[in-house]
Every structure is written in structure tokens, then in C-alpha cells.
Design a protein around this nucleic acid. Structure first.
Lengths: 122, 122
DNA sequence: ACTCTTCGTAAGCATACACTTACCGTAAGT
DNA sequence: ACTTACGGTAAGTGTATGCTTACGAAGAGT
């Protein structure tokens, strides 16, 4: 098997609750995706949006706490940019789950001859 | 990484809001991770948890709506299991963002000659 | 020093969310 | 048919969340 078990790696992994919660909100994910095109200031982000500037600031704070974006003071304004390293934990978590799920799924399929199992072939 | 799967890496632009929201809650992610060890019934999941059984049912409904788990009727009980395909959109989205971020970050580094570049693509 | 711009934070409010108990439908055992 | 076990759903409640306006702090230009 090419995927390794997660017995030791998954518990040691940082719980990505904050990352998931940060990306769960539509507006926040929209802001995050806007930053994918390059760093922007708060007013710039707020200007193209139906919400107020403080709301954008609050959203950016959540994203920053989750480690998804970084703020760089630039004069009186702050330049927000996506932090690629902040995305790594989420990817690691997803990889771990992915491997487990594939393993469980393979085991499930392998046990399909067992009458106590009923899988839905897709 | 070598998880070549015949599971379609669906590049559908479906917004993964539901997936993120489903995995944002701690209890829900805990339930989801419990199912990684194999399919379980509602009462089984609820028995090892400080919340009531209806609460677990509601969480499972959210996970099912997000396409993360599937329910298989089995007598009077329902066997819940992780749906591997439900995870694909999230992975696709993450891959997309990852590429964009690396590109934008590289451009930023090229512009500012920032030495803090530490990319770790597998 | 004054002013202007930019931004974060505090206070308040409306809605969404996670949880509870109570209830009803359904499948299996006797 | 009756009883038991399992589980989804409705109704209600407390808390979290996303938004607003109002205000204060800090740097840049005149």
C-alpha cells in the first residue's frame, strides 16, 4: 500500500479547526480568494464589496489568526497577503484523511463478499 | 505522493462552503474522524460522546449534506461511513489555491527579494 | 503643528448555530 | 399484534457570529 497509516501522525497534527472555520464563511473565503490575485489593502478589499470596511478588518483578523493571511504595514495602510505556509496544515490533514478513507474504502470493498456488508457501488 | 485514484478529481467549481462549514465544528470533525476507523451507527457514535444522540444525528445530517458521509440502512439502524468522493472537491479547491498562492508568492519574492521563501511541494 | 487618510477596536444588534427534551415512524424479535 | 430498539425530526433555548456605527491611534503630506 502506498498510503501510510495515520496512527501516529494524525494526533500530533495541529487541529485545523481555525482554518476550517475561517474558510467556512462565504465572505471570508471570497476575501481570501481575492487575495490570491495579489496583496491588497483593507480599503481596496472593502471597496468592491457590499460590507463595511470594519467588517473586512474583522474578517482579515480571523484569517490572520488562522494563519492564512499575513499583514505587512506599509505606511498608514496594511498590505494583506495570503500566507502559503498557513495552508500547509490543512493540506497535511486532508492528505491524512484521504489515505485513511481510501484504506477503509479498500477494506470495505475487499470484505464485500462478507454477507454482513452491503456497499453501494459507485 | 502516490495516491493515484480513479476517483474523479472533479474540477467542478462547486463552492466548498458546505464542506468547510461541516468540518469547521469540532464535534463534527471529531465524528468525521471517528468514522475514519470504519462505519458506525448513530448510537455507537453517540455512546462515546458527551452529547445526546439527536445531536449526533443532526451533525451527521450536516456531514451528509456536505457529501462527506453516506448512510446505509441496515435493519433498524443506519450505518454511517465516510464518502471518499465527498472529499475530492475540497482537495481540488485546495490544489487550485495552492498553485495560485505559490505563483503569487513567487512573484512577490521576485519583486521584493524576500529571503523567507520556504515552499514545500511534495 | 495641523490635517488627512488608513485602519483597528468597542459597543450593540439580528441572525445562525449547537444542543436539549419530547415525540413519532419503522424494522426486528417474541 | 405487541413490545423493544434505533433513529430522524420538531420545538425551544443559550451562545456564537457577522454586521453596523462610533471612536481612537498612527503615519504621511502640507
Amino acid at each position: 500500500m502506498t498510503y501510510e497509516t495515520n496512527l501516529a501522525t494524525d494526533q500530533s497534527a495541529l487541529p485545523p479547526s481555525q482554518v476550517f472555520a475561517a474558510l467556512a464563511d462565504d465572505t471570508r473565503r471570497d476575501i481570501f480568494e481575492t487575495l490570491r490575485n495579489g496583496p491588497k489593502t483593507v480599503t481596496t478589499i472593502a471597496s468592491g464589496r457590499p460590507i463595511s470596511r470594519p467588517a473586512v478588518s474583522q474578517h482579515l483578523k480571523v484569517l490572520a489568526d488562522a494563519g492564512l493571511v499575513t499583514a505587512t504595514p506599509k505606511g498608514t495602510s496594511r498590505l494583506y497577503a495570503v500566507d502559503p505556509q498557513g495552508l500547509a496544515p490543512l493540506r497535511a490533514y486532508l492528505d491524512s484523511v484521504w489515505g485513511d478513507v481510501l484504506g477503509a474504502f479498500a477494506a470495505e470493498v475487499a470484505n464485500q463478499t462478507n454477507p454482513s456488508n452491503q456497499e453501494d457501488p459507485t
